[in-house]
């Protein structure tokens, strides 16, 4: 019996502004979790700080609401210690691409089997709408005293160059489309990244529902195949994805930009070094026997014999 979306709703009142795009992301997650029938006990939603940081509290799976910018390394520890868990990260643009951008890049380099959902609303909502790293230079949403003086990062291009092996963009007000992306990202073995365009109803009077409605189009409606099935397709598909990531003004593409199905995940790399890793990862290992360490005096000397000298 598949769990229904409603079964993933927690009892916590959702305190986002009515009409916020975050509701669309949450709705897509409920639907995706339901369709994948994720076990709440084996699923962990990890978040950073800000409006998106509250997401785990609204979902009836495990939830870890961490520090500003640090959701990725928290999630990494959880996943590597217990790789059987499905770990999803929700973070804002300020969180993942501002204070936490170093971790964002590092996760791409590692290709750990994690899914990132970036709530991109171009502002820092909970601290009154300052410009985020994704707000273009020269723009001045109502909340800013002066136009933004810094350039924006391109999240898709950054993810591509960092090594993410699943990269997509969704729109929070197109929930079934976003749901499909989330499902694909979770099912992908490796670091998956979804940028979600999410209007901030209170602070951003530029990137409104109307704004996106006019611009957003689905890549899959045209002849677009982003999937790397063989290693020699990588360069070509990555370059095409990179070119596509530059398209952001008059028209904004959504859908999967790039997926590398040939990449080796970090967990598989650890497994190559430690053959027992996947079946007996750190979280599942027994470390004591009746309150005593499993290494006794004899075992100790065998393990560390390099350090022990027999006196003549």
């Amino acid at each position: 019996m598949v769990r229904k979306p409603v079964e993933y709703q927690s009892d916590v009142w959702v305190d986002w502004c009515p009409g916020c795009g975050d509701f669309g992301i949450l709705a897509s997650m409920y639907r995706a979790f339901s369709e994948l029938d994720l076990s709440p006990e084996k699923t962990v939603v990890v978040s950073g700080i800000g409006c998106s940081g509250k997401t785990p509290h609204f979902i009836k799976t495990n939830g870890v609401h961490t520090l500003h910018g640090r959701a990725i390394p928290f999630a990494m520890g959880i996943k590597l210690a217990n790789p059987e868990l499905t770990v999803i990260i929700n973070g804002g643009d300020g969180d993942l691409l501002g204070i936490g951008i170093g971790h964002f890049i590092a996760l791409g380099r590692r290709n750990i089997d994690l899914t990132i959902i970036l709530h991109n609303n171009t502002v820092y909502g909970l601290t009154k709408g300052q410009a985020s790293p994704t707000l273009k230079r020269g723009l001045k949403p109502k909340s800013l005293p002066k136009p933004n003086i810094q350039d924006a990062v391109n999240p898709i291009a950054l993810a591509l160059s960092s090594g993410y092996t699943f990269i997509a963009r969704g729109y929070s007000m197109m929930v079934d489309h976003l749901k499909e992306l989330i499902k694909k990202a979770i099912q992908h073995k490796g670091a998956a990244f979804i940028e979600v365009l999410q209007p901030c109803i209170t602070y951003d009077n530029i990137h409104t529902v109307e704004y996106y409605k006019k611009r957003v189009y689905k890549m899959e409606d045209s002849d677009w195949n982003p999937i790397v099935e063989k290693i020699d397709e990588r360069e070509d598909k990555m370059l095409k994805a990179l070119a596509k990531s530059m398209e952001y003004d008059e028209k904004i593409p959504i859908g999967v930009f790039y997926q590398d199905k040939c990449a080796v995940s970090f967990e598989e790399r650890i497994h190559e070094r430690i053959p027992t890793y996947l079946e007996n990862p750190p979280a599942k290992q027994k470390i004591e026997q009746d309150g005593r360490p499993i290494i006794d005096n004899i075992t100790f000397k065998k393990i560390f014999n390099q350090y022990i000298v027999e006196v003549e």
Binding site: P73, P281, A283
Partner: peptide, 20 residues
């Protein structure tokens, strides 16, 4: 990538029950 990630991932691992 830095000590911030070091402690954060240690906490993450500890939450799963591994001695970290």
């Amino acid at each position: 990538e830095d000590e911030i990630a070091a402690i954060a991932s240690t906490i993450g691992a500890a939450l799963t029950g591994a001695r970290a």
